[in-house]
C-alpha cells in the first residue's frame, strides 16, 4: 500500500512523488488534499495537496517542498518504498463550473495544486489565464504541464530571470482592468494570496484562495486549522481548503501559521506542520 512508483527532483528542494493509492485516486476531485505520516509514532502528520491523480493506474501525484525534517524524510524515501500512513482525499473539492473568464494565480509550489483545478476549469469551457510566479527561474514546477491546460501562461519572477520582473499582483491588476475576469483562483504562499485578494477587491472579482493552515487530523476533530471567514470560524480541513479570499481574515491566519515559530527556532531540527507556509517563497 502507498508504494512510491516514481520520484523526480524538480528543483533544489522540490520533489514530485507518484504514489500508489487507488482509493484516493478514485475518490479524488480537484482541490482536495491528503495527510501523510511516516512511521506511526513520532513523525508529524503533513497535509499536501493532490497535484494530479490517475484513476486507471491508481496513483496520485504529490509535489513536496522539503523544508523541514518531516518533509525531508518523505523525499528521502525511494521508489518502491511505502508511506505508512496516507489519508485522503480530504477537504471540499473546488466548486467547478462554467464561469467564463478565469485567472489562476500560482506562486511557488502552489502551482502544483493549481494544475488539476486549471485543467478542469479549462475542460469545462472556461477561458483560463494562468499567472505563475517564483523567486527565480529555477523554482518553477510543472510549467510545461500547466502551459498545456490553459489559454495563456504569464510568467513572473522576482529577479527577472524569466518572464516579467514583477510580483504576481502586477499582471493580476492589469487583467482585472483590461480583461475583466469573472473568477480568480489563487494558491500559494499566504502572503501572496492575501495580496491577490487585496488586488481584486476593488474590481469586485470573486476570488477564491486555497488555505494551507497548520493541521493535525484533517477530519475536523481538533480545530487547529481554524480560520476566521467573515464573522464565522471555519475548519480549513473539512469546510475548505478553498474560501472566498475577500472574507478571509488574512492577518489572523498569517499569525496563526507562526504559532510554533519560537519552538522551531529553538529546535532547529524541527519543522512546522504543513507545507507551502515557508516565507522563503513569499513574494
Amino acid at each position: 500500500m502507498n508504494k512510491i512508483v516514481s520520484k523526480e527532483q524538480l528543483s533544489a528542494d522540490i520533489y514530485k512523488l507518484v504514489i500508489e493509492a487507488p482509493l484516493i485516486a478514485e475518490a479524488h476531485k480537484p482541490g482536495q488534499f491528503i495527510i501523510l505520516q511516516l512511521g506511526g509514532d513520532f513523525n508529524e502528520r503533513i497535509p499536501l495537496t493532490i497535484a494530479d491523480a490517475d484513476e486507471e493506474r491508481g496513483t496520485i501525484t504529490l509535489i513536496i517542498q522539503a523544508v523541514g525534517e518531516s518533509t525531508k524524510a518523505v523525499v528521502a524515501l525511494n521508489v518502491g518504498q511505502s508511506i505508512e500512513n496516507l489519508l485522503g482525499p480530504l477537504g471540499q473539492p473546488t466548486k467547478l463550473g462554467k464561469f467564463g473568464k478565469v485567472v489562476c494565480v500560482g506562486g511557488g509550489i502552489g502551482v502544483a495544486p493549481m494544475y488539476p483545478i486549471a485543467k478542469a476549469l479549462h475542460e469545462l469551457g472556461n477561458e483560463v489565464k494562468m499567472i505563475l510566479g517564483a523567486r527565480n527561474k529555477d523554482l518553477f514546477v510543472m510549467k510545461e504541464e500547466m502551459a498545456s491546460v490553459v489559454d495563456e501562461l504569464i510568467i513572473v519572477t522576482d529577479d527577472g530571470s524569466e518572464g516579467r520582473k514583477a510580483l504576481v499582483t502586477v499582471p493580476l491588476k492589469e487583467l482585472c482592468e483590461e480583461w475583466k475576469p469573472d473568477l480568480v483562483v489563487t494558491i500559494g504562499p499566504p502572503i501572496m494570496m492575501k495580496f491577490c485578494a487585496l488586488t481584486t477587491l476593488p474590481y469586485g472579482v470573486h476570488t477564491i484562495a486555497s488555505l494551507n493552515t497548520i493541521m493535525i487530523d484533517g477530519t475536523g476533530m481538533c480545530g487547529g486549522c481554524r480560520v476566521s471567514i467573515g464573522d464565522e470560524t471555519k475548519f480549513v480541513c473539512v469546510d475548505g481548503p478553498e474560501f472566498d479570499a475577500h472574507k478571509v481574515d488574512w492577518n489572523n491566519m498569517l499569525s496563526r501559521l507562526g504559532t510554533y515559530k519560537p519552538q522551531e527556532e529553538e529546535n532547529k531540527h524541527k519543522c512546522r506542520m504543513g507545507l507551502n507556509t515557508e516565507d522563503t517563497e513569499a513574494k
Binding site: F42, R45, E69, Y260
Partner: peptide, 29 residues
C-alpha cells in the same frame, strides 16, 4: 482564534497521538 488558544482535542492530540510530550523524539511541536 488568537495564538495560544487551543481546543482540548488539539492540545491532547498533539501530546498523546502525536507523542509531542516526548520532546526528544517527536517532531510535532
Amino acid at each position: 482564534n488568537l495564538i495560544g488558544v487551543f481546543s482540548a482535542n488539539e492540545f491532547l492530540t498533539r501530546s498523546n497521538l502525536m507523542k509531542a510530550y516526548d520532546q526528544k523524539d517527536s517532531l510535532t511541536p
